[in-house]
Design a binder for these strands. Structure first.
Lengths: 193, 193, 193, 193
DNA sequence: AATGAATGAGGATTCATTCAT
DNA sequence: AATGAATGAATCCTCATTCAT
């Protein structure tokens, strides 16, 4: 129980204030426990961080994996819009995990740079593949204009990244949803037949 | 002299390792000076950080302002592509300032959250306006399909944000340039007549 | 245990060398502990000082309060001499607390000026009242010449203050006791019928 | 010029905030000069302090010496009251010097304990002698009751010490003057024939 | 006489971590 | 599983002092 509450508090705080900006005492206090109690569950600050990192990464990977599911009866367009929607959902439902992931993907603490970069490669590849598949599907459906696939993949991934930043930068729900739709419309116009 | 070297070292280190992750001693060492020497020029760590922040922000603002210049004889398409190119140039020429700006735009240290958010609003507005103007120009030229302006502005800004992340995430020059072009092509396809 | 030893060491050192002249490391060393251990018990140097101040003040207040006790069967003269004796006893038995109190009553550290002045008002008033009562009692007994009370109160309090300084200024027991008696004799001659 | 302004600022600040509580930079700032300028005139903080100490001590000694003067045509009573008056005048006219002297007489910084104690002995003796003489004069005049001299000396010096503390403790002029008169009256009643 | 730059020493404070309980 | 006490290392910062100018 405490173990999990620690993980949650750590995820939130590490995500919000960074690794160096978060003291173990803050995490402990949030959970209503004294600092040394943390050591009953985690070997060190790094260990706690890594555990949290793995968990956040798992959430993220699961999210990425599930993007592939349930799109059997959907058009390519629906699936691609669905990716953005689900990304949005993920941000709203797991704000801590997603902020954490975004932060350490772009600004990993020095001692974890390599580990983290490697960890992201995996989901990156999976996502790239999925998007590629969808684009091909779109072409087969005749919805997407026949052309090289890579540029469209690059574009779509860029759309996703842009929306990530915007989500954490602009906090308003309405603004974000408007942007999401606008951005997707333009993208789709750029690729459709 | 030392004052400036301190600022440069600070910008690089704060940008790379974060506010809390950077010790004044590191900054001093980089400049070949002992820690207390910093206090001859800056009142505190926060003061040094803020000075650096203002400087980085100024670079960024200048960059944003100069986007508006020298586009008299250019088509809207050229101007818009030019923005992405110049953003890329800015990243390459001022990697420290730009990494710094990106980091603290998305992850400001707690004690500066408000100040920083406010500082960004300014350039944000200016950029939004410029992009709007270009899109209208594009429509007048007949290059961009007649439609609502806002969605296109949102899309273009999203393209820029996406490319920002990607620049710092993928370090390879070639990959970045490929993406830049792909992304712009798709965007342009999505908006052109 | 450590908490108390810290308080005692702090009282002695703050009293002897002043707030700014006393390093936490000295206090810690005296107790056989490293400096950061202090922070397990006190929030800051100021906190430790204030705690010690309150304690010293309490000792002093208790001393003042107990002056009023046990004087039922005593003549005014005995009671007044008793005050000086007990003051002397207090100095000998709680040399640290009393030196501390004297020092910060006259030379409070800047950040505490107000707090401290206020704290002294209380005991001052109580003492003034007690002395007033005794003088009236003396007049009723016929031992003290009928006259205005205030001048006698002022005089007696002045006698006490003078003896305070002298106690800490001249360290010799004999000298002090001689002075005490001389001073009281003269005072009494000045007031008696 | 600067040399003197430094001395004055130092006297005031050392007197007010103590040796350790006063930074050279404060003294310099008060004079409108940068810290290292102090070293053009004084070898070190200790040197500055000692110079100031000597000066304050000189003022005090001069004051003590002058107490002996101009009392040819005065009665003992007038002379003794005059001492208290002049002490009061000294406090008002040289508040910095007198506060300084009082502070370091009772609470000398550790490194000066001996030097300072020695320095005070001199004026103490002189004062004791003067008071003794006056008392004898008073007896010869028939104004003071025949008795042992020492007790009266002790009493008068105690009166002076008490008034010293009170001067710096109670800041009100009226209160102080009232006390001065009350205290002297009582003293005189205690000693007169 | 005065300053700007720099430093060594030291001071308060925080923090991750350990250990006995 | 949890805590109170304690610590070593490090951090920010101050201060007296020096030195070249």
């Amino acid at each position: 129980m405490t173990r999990n509450k620690l993980k949650e508090a750590a995820m939130r705080l590490f995500g919000e204030k960074g690794y160096d900006g978060t003291a173990l005492s803050e995490i402990a206090k949030e959970v209503g426990v004294k600092t040394p109690a943390i050591y009953a569950f985690y070997e060190s600050k790094e260990d706690l961080f890594m555990t949290v990192f793995r968990e956040a990464m798992d959430s993220y990977n699961t999210f990425i994996q599930e993007l592939s599911k349930g799109r059997e009866k959907l058009s390519a367009r629906e699936s691609m819009y669905g990716i953005l929607s689900r990304q949005y959902e993920f941000y709203r439902e797991c704000p801590d995990a997603s902020k954490f992931v975004l932060r350490y993907m772009v600004f990993p603490p020095v001692f974890l740079k390599e580990t983290i970069e490697e960890a992201f490669l995996h989901s990156d590849e999976r996502l790239t593949k999925l998007v590629g598949t969808l684009i091909v599907q779109g072409m087969e459906e005749g919805a997407i204009r026949d052309q090289k696939v890579q540029p469209l993949v690059d574009s779509f991934l860029n759309v996703m990244d842009g929306l990530s930043i915007q989500y954490f930068y602009y906090t308003s729900k309405e603004v974000y949803e408007r942007k999401l739709n606008h951005v997707f419309e333009t993208f789709w116009n750029g690729v459709r037949s």
